[in-house]
Amino acid sequence: MSDPILSTEDLGKTFRDFWRRPRARAVDSLSLSLEPGEVYGLLGPNGSGKSTSIKLILGLLHPDKGRIRVFGKSPRDVKVKHRIGYLPEESNLYPYLDARESLRFTAALFGIDPEEREWRITQLLEMVGLSHTGRRRIGEFSKGMARRIGLAQALINDPDLVILDEPTSGLDPLGTRQVKDIIRSLAERGKTVLLSSHLLADVEDVCDRICILYGGIVRAEGPIRELLQVANHLQLQLEDLDPEKRNQLLNLLEDMLGKRPQLEPSRKDLETFFLEVVAKAREDSGEASGTRKEGELAEFLV
């Protein structure tokens, strides 16, 4: 097995007040190990320590105990940060910059040369559907629009490790869908993604492995397929069955099992339905002033 991209051992963090008295135990004995190309989900209710774990991994907080290695180095090493893309929990961007300036600033700190920088920015803006905002300041953006800029910022350096703290919060279902697609395609390219969320559907769709935190302690951990398997429970899917055949089938099953099984029409999930409606609306009435149709995945990320 290759070296893990990110590993933590027995990580612990307790927030203290001015007099060093413990105030909140945010993370306790967290041990993770992320392999290249893996999408890892941190799950947990509010205040369970997801964001704190991420800040520890980024070196923004100092652990009380335990060890963190990112690309085999300390997270506070500046070189390590060149390979990380981070989307914070709240996208507080500089309100007086426009989208392009904001991305330019981030790119400059990554030392990306100007020509490459402009190219990447154009593609990222296209990708998150904000290329038309021109000189509008980020301060005027809606929450979801700002969130999309945050996401573009996190990807501008074509990072090997992408850390996303609640990436879909504030996003519309289209944005959510796209973020999930981006995460999957990043993973296919061998990038490692660590994301936190309490939106279970999102996590379920994209994560290979998850860990459920509660009170800062890992309560469950493993590959998502294994965790979600229900023993002795099977599902049968049938298409286009006429009423006569259906009755025959039910009778047959009743004879075999000794009890008549439940039969329900198949439903699409709300996400699929929503996506269909919006797609149709777009065809009918063109563009609106918020986000527009999201583009393809940025070329430099493909």
Binding site: K55, K81, H82, N92, Y94
Partner: peptide, 14 residues
């Protein structure tokens, strides 16, 4: 105060 420092300091910047 505006929680912007977290992002800036996650970038490669001393």
């Amino acid at each position: 105060a505006n929680k912007r420092l977290q992002h800036i300091l996650s970038l490669p910047l001393r």
